[in-house]
Design a protein around this nucleic acid. Structure first.
Lengths: 259, 259
DNA sequence: CGATAAATTGAACTCTATCAATAGGTGTGG
DNA sequence: CCACACCTATTGATAGAGTTCAATTTATCG
């Protein structure tokens, strides 16, 4: 059973055994954090990096209105801040959503990682994918109605969780409240509730007891307008690009061409 | 008169003269692109990198509904895709918004740049800042009402344009249609129009003939909830962090603390 | 079992979209 | 220089999506 990080990186790059060993070496200083804990605050200049081994966490920014916007999810295998050092200061907060187990990676270890070309490259790949996901989230929140936003989020999570072995049979554990889902897709918990019920009524999904089941994958993908490409699985490096292949709505129809 | 790229990078890092020379060497293969041209399409695996020298461009993603969402602006000094090679395939489209003049940078040149440690670092800094801006845009679209979205966008653009010498005296050229502004902040052109009028009526800004004037900077910043930190100017490297200092609303009041 | 958080429901209200029509600007060809 | 065509901005009326408030029910947890 590989560790979540190497599992993730291997899904996209081929790494020499020595690199994988290095990744495993790092797995000693593990610790737990209860749900709803801030791991790093906006404005901090953190000294070390976190890797999530188990549980859900998120990046978020708080507004003066009291509302907070979740800007990304961190699931097992995700690094919290591989590259903070370059920016020097956090521009957002990282909090656990559920009880998490994490691994702290010292800057020294991180430097060792970045010295290995294939690891450094895989690491950068990972943060560029994060950026791509961010773009898709912006599209989601900026241009899709409530039901589609949720549908899209569910598709993405299915693919991401499946890649780390946390989803099977079109269903996975989604330990978030409707309020948190709302903070993610820019909706009220009340509205999230009603949208979920509508989706349930249409036989798309069931979300019950923190367990999400996708009843009609094909239609969910279609409703969501979900195109897996932005997750960049299996692009360029690895031969194994099968993951999630099944969850995608063919190519986007071309828009009116710009002259 | 320095070139826009080195100007931008110098604002955050100290570069040896040889690095600056290298950046200037690259400035030969310049070309023009008319407004509304796609430079790179979603799905492409581009062979070279573009740098904007003059004009506005954007990254966007199109939906099957026909709507497109602009996910970031590219202004002079911005590189279109420093690191596409790592992902291999574009997950979004890059188009000009106005007539642009660009510089094409070959992969060879790019490799040369990335071989210089301080340039590579500055380059990565630049893409991490882009990611930070993306997060802020997500917050903008996900949690702010129409007027605030526009206000926030105008603040950001002021700071960014000023950093490359394209804004003075709280005013700058904003050569976008209201429809394009809408595509940016997730609103209809009609609604953008009304929001702009309201802002004008309140004495916040005037946008006329593609020229934006900020009438009341302090209040605009306050309305927008604009906090300059996410642009990461002057963080860590350079001594010159004065740029845009004046356009910021003090620290965000702490939210209710998570236990 | 009681206490607290989460989910659900209904009604009223707000913001934003849609539709449709008018006015203003800009550029082109005659 | 004018007239026409086209794009952009503006306005009004109407509909829809999403929010707010408040109350109720259902889970969850010690």
């Amino acid at each position: 059973m590989p560790n979540p990080l190497s599992r993730k990186l291997l899904s996209v790059a081929t790494l020499p055994p020595s690199d994988i060993e290095l990744l495993d070496m790092i797995f000693d200083q593990r610790f737990e954090a209860p749900a709803h804990t801030n791991l790093i605050n906006e404005g901090d200049a953190p000294a070390c990096i976190h890797l999530i081994t188990d549980g859900f966490a998120c990046r978020s920014k708080g507004l003066s209105s009291g509302r907070r916007q979740i800007v990304s999810y961190l699931v097992p295998g995700d690094l919290c801040d591989a590259h903070v050092r370059i920016l020097g200061r956090m521009d957002h907060t990282i909090s656990t959503l559920t009880d998490c187990t994490l691994v702290r990676i010292s800057q020294t270890h991180m430097d060792q990682i970045m010295e290995r070309p294939s690891l450094a490259r895989a690491m950068w790949w990972s943060t560029l994918v994060e950026e791509s996901v961010l773009r898709e989230w912006l599209v989601n929140v900026g241009s899709r109605p409530a039901k589609q936003r949720l549908a899209h989020l569910f598709c993405e999570l299915y693919v991401r969780l499946r890649a780390v072995g946390l989803a099977q049979d079109h269903s996975y554990s989604l330990p978030l409240t409707q309020h948190e889902l709302g903070e993610t897709v820019g909706l009220t918990s009340v509205h999230v509730n009603r949208a979920l019920q509508a989706m349930r009524a249409e036989g798309l999904i069931v979300l019950h007891q923190k367990e999400l089941e996708i009843l009609d994958p094909a239609r969910l993908v279609e409703v969501a307008g979900f195109h897996i490409a932005y997750l960049h699985f299996g692009t360029r490096h690895g031969p194994d690009s099968s993951v999630g292949t099944e969850l995608d709505a063919g190519p986007e129809p071309r828009r009116k061409k710009v002259p």
